[in-house]
Design a protein around this nucleic acid. Structure first.
Lengths: 260, 260
DNA sequence: TTCAGCTGTGAAAATCCTGTGAACGCAGGG
DNA sequence: CCCTGCGTTCACAGGATTTTCACAGCTGAA
């Protein structure tokens, strides 16, 4: 459903020219990227929660094969693409059999590298499917993508599909002010007609449901002439004397100046 | 996990030398293979239940791109590998963006082609992990994969093949809301055409059979605008001689081990 | 303070979605 | 060859959801 899910990529390569050119494009495409000029322990790669890893065998040195093997074994969900200089058929076959997803020879065009990374990620995601990220918790809300629904405690907000998608978008971009056009574009999937008030109407519906289910919080803030911003806020004093089992971390999101 | 799981491959190529050499190897590897010297309708590819498709753009002629696009759209689970003569970066990028999984230039070594086909097919297996678990028991139902049938006590639901597959899918993903497209994709094996109501019809059939066999339970829940969710529910009091005066709705989703 | 332009609101209207029954075509068995 | 079981497709009815509209209340700049 997320058509253009952003890709989290790490690049292990010391060819600064190649990396620079590539980075420019990945950045333009909105990918999240980390460049490393030498190998790092697989554990650290795990922590980065990557979709894909692009690496040059040359920078790995003698331990290249070992390293590849460990990566592929430890991170079976990570797309691994080797992009390196001349190689023999035997080397490529060895790599691919080891678990590498694609092997590209340098020199190569950055656009093709990206297309191949996308292809690998696409496939990864499809098989992985529903695992996704756990439920998103904001304020008193719990947004569960696998249920297409939001909850407060045990109670469901009873959101319709559109309502849920709108809430999800807002919550995903918590803290940002989104223009109506942008909201419409991303939830409805096509451009908003001039004068369309759908976004406003759905914001009202959401507010209603949020108000009845979570009365002590305010979630959706209006920015006059622009659009809306999602930020869970409550003026309730954090319970200090509550049962010690719940530390009750109240997220007040105080980094954004209160406007409106 | 086992990389040498048998692969079902179709090859669309008229280069007899290439095909012969490749076939010899795939046969030795125990793959199931079908060679076609020209394009065939996507529908027939569906019926072959392939893991991977290897094709040469040259034999497709003018409709190559169209054909590729249709294939990739209809069969998102099929690994598509293009193996063709000279090509430009733009062509390769176009293909990969269209949904092709890998693009190999001829001439190439058959061993590498196989390794790439394996790499592409690898993921699919992981999700398809046919864990040979015992019969699945949900609510009053007992779903036996080895019989392609479900039972309540001794009585069979008398499910047809599709009905059973649908029930199995739903029960396997108990608690999750599945979109119609996803259900169709996983039960029928290819992409759902717009406006297709098959899923609804089979849900109705399932509900009928479930209702007659297990009247006190509700299993399949509709999520408007999205799809269906499987969750066995009953308001019957599970205890032996329940007090009939108090129906008392009991939430019985007992995935929590009984603690006494 | 005033005014034009925005936004909130409630409800009607239009649209879309699902449940349902039935017809159709196909294939295998009798 | 006909019959039967199965999967697919169609049309319709009843609801649920989304869109549209008119109006009231607000906002911010002059």
């Amino acid at each position: 459903m997320n058509p253009q899910q952003t890709i989290r990529l790490a690049v292990i390569d010391d060819d600064s020219g190649f990396v620079t050119v590539l980075s420019k494009r990945t950045e333009a495409a909105g990918w999240q990227q980390r460049v490393l000029s030498s190998a790092i322990p697989p554990q650290e790669l795990v922590a980065m929660k990557l979709n894909a890893l692009l690496l040059d065998m040359a920078v790995l040195g003698d331990e290249a094969w070992d390293y590849l093997e460990r990566i592929c074994e430890m991170l079976p969900d990570l797309g691994v693409i080797v992009c390196t200089g001349r190689s023999t058929v035997a080397q490529r076959v060895r790599g691919l059999r080891l678990g590498v997803d694609d092997w590209i020879g340098k020199p190569c065009h950055p656009e093709e590298v990206m297309a191949r990374i996308e292809a690998v990620s696409r496939r990864r995601r499809r098989s992985r499917a529903e695992v996704e990220t756990g439920p998103l918790v904001v304020g008193e809300l719990e947004i569960r993508a696998d249920q297409f629904q939001a909850f407060v405690g045990e109670g469901s907000l009873d959101l319709t599909r559109r309502e849920f998608e709108l809430l999800q978008l807002l919550a995903d971009t918590k803290g940002q002010v989104l223009e109506r056009e942008a909201i419409y574009q991303r939830v409805w999937g096509y451009a908003m007609a001039h004068g369309d008030r759908s976004v406003d109407v759905f914001v009202r519906k959401l507010r209603q449901k949020l108000e009845t289910t979570s009365p002590r919080w305010r979630y959706i803030h209006t920015h006059f002439g622009i659009g809306y911003r999602f930020d869970p806020e409550t003026d309730e004093i954090p319970v200090l004397d509550a049962d010690p089992e719940r530390p009750e971390p109240v997220d007040q999101n105080a980094d954004i100046p209160a406007s409106v």
